[in-house]
């Protein structure tokens, strides 16, 4: 064998040796055990920390809420769908609070009217129209949405006092308490409301609009005279319009 060839073979052998040594250390140990990948990567993926917890942990502490939830339409919904992942809360419930949203937009994620939603699967409302003055949770119990707050209160009192109206119509109340009508009970103008409380969407309240209706209290010669109630001559005062064209009914000294 010529010298050069032997040298060449030796050099080649060294290269192969170095190469195999490098390969020995560089290729991960479990590579190729199961396929062309690192078998340890399976365990690596399994070791990822989980965030969403078992909901039995929720009902352990929040028994009352979970009891009310299990009777309503939301019974199948996981607590964490609305409240976010519970891993931190169960570690330290006082410091790490769960998410809680009472915004209309939050409920609208599921319940807003959308052509793509099947009406048999989910109840939808037009959120641009449905009682826009109030938050959903003022009227509906979020954990069991069939339970309406006002209904529960009226069942207890057997009455329809303004306090119950305010539960849903709190924005109107805020306007009303600013003006002259603050001491007038809702029922004086809108009538009896027990049916409306039972099914608000089906039984609407009476909404007065005629001049004669306002005249019952404010018309000269029609209304019984009493102190502090502004008297107006219905035959002269801006006869072409309805009162509520200019005045805001709930706060009459404010104008539209």
């Amino acid at each position: 064998m010529p010298n050069q060839l032997r040298n060449l073979i030796i050099v080649f052998a060294i290269f192969v040796g170095l190469f195999l040594t490098a390969r020995h250390f560089l290729v991960p140990k479990t590579f190729g055990d199961l396929g062309h990948y690192r078998a340890d990567a399976l365990q690596y993926n399994i070791d990822h920390e989980k965030k969403f917890v078992d909901t039995t942990l929720c009902s352990n502490c929040h028994t009352d809420i979970s009891n009310s939830k299990y009777v309503g339409a939301h019974k199948l919904i996981n607590c964490q769908t609305c409240h976010g992942a519970g891993n931190k809360h169960i570690e330290n419930p006082t410091i790490n609070k769960m998410e809680k949203s009472s915004e209309r937009e939050f409920c609208a994620k599921c319940h807003a009217k959308n052509l793509a939603r099947s009406s048999t699967v989910i109840k939808q409302v037009d959120i641009t129209k449905h009682n826009i003055d109030s938050k959903c949770v003022n009227c509906h119990n979020p954990h069991s949405p069939e339970i309406k707050m006002a209904q529960v209160a009226s069942n207890q009192n057997k009455k329809d006092e303004p306090a119950i109206c305010i539960m849903c119509h709190d924005k109107i109340d805020k306007i009303k308490t600013k003006g002259m009508h603050k001491s007038v009970p809702c029922q004086s103008c809108h009538g009896e409301g027990l049916n409306h409380i039972k099914s608000p969407s089906k039984s609407n309240m009476f909404k007065p609009s005629k001049r004669e209706f306002c005249g019952k209290c404010h018309g000269i010669g029609i209304a019984p005279k009493s102190k502090g109630i502004k008297q107006i001559d219905l035959k002269e005062h801006n006869i072409e319009n309805k009162c509520i064209d200019c005045h805001i009914g709930h706060n009459p000294l404010e104008f539209k």
Partner: peptide, 26 residues
């Protein structure tokens, strides 16, 4: 050179098992 050649050969044998493992899996 001889020694390193022997070492290389040994390593070659050892790591020959590796690719076989991969082929089996494939």
């Amino acid at each position: 050179f001889k020694k390193s050649g022997a070492i290389a050969g040994g390593l070659l044998l050892v790591s020959m098992l590796d690719p076989l493992k991969q082929i089996k899996a494939l």
